[in-house]
């Protein structure tokens, strides 16, 4: 089965939310700043719970935060 690659708009959404810092987002989401850095760089795909928490913080639907690079056939 082909591996799905997931990208995200976390960096963009941070800037759209009063240029929120990584540290501020990390504190609100209850994770370390390094985890936010890893998510933004695409080095870590968060759990469903953390993904939803980020969507709630940005007040947008989940698919606006995380999306598939190439939709499955």
């Amino acid at each position: 089965m082909e591996k799905l690659t997931i990208s995200n708009n976390v960096r963009k959404l941070r800037f759209q939310h009063n240029e929120m810092t990584q540290q501020q987002l990390a504190e609100q989401a209850g994770v370390t700043r390094q985890t936010i850095v890893a998510i933004e760089q695409g080095k870590y795909t968060p759990s469903l719970e953390l993904a939803f928490r980020l969507a709630v913080i940005f007040n947008v639907p989940l698919e606006e935060v995380f999306f598939l690079n190439k939709p499955p056939p």
Binding site: G30, V31, T32, R33, Q34, T35, A38, Y44, P46, S47, E49, L50
Partner: peptide, 9 residues
Amino acid sequence: EPGLTDERD
């Protein structure tokens, strides 16, 4: 020092 360990840790 990070005050917590999260899911990634």
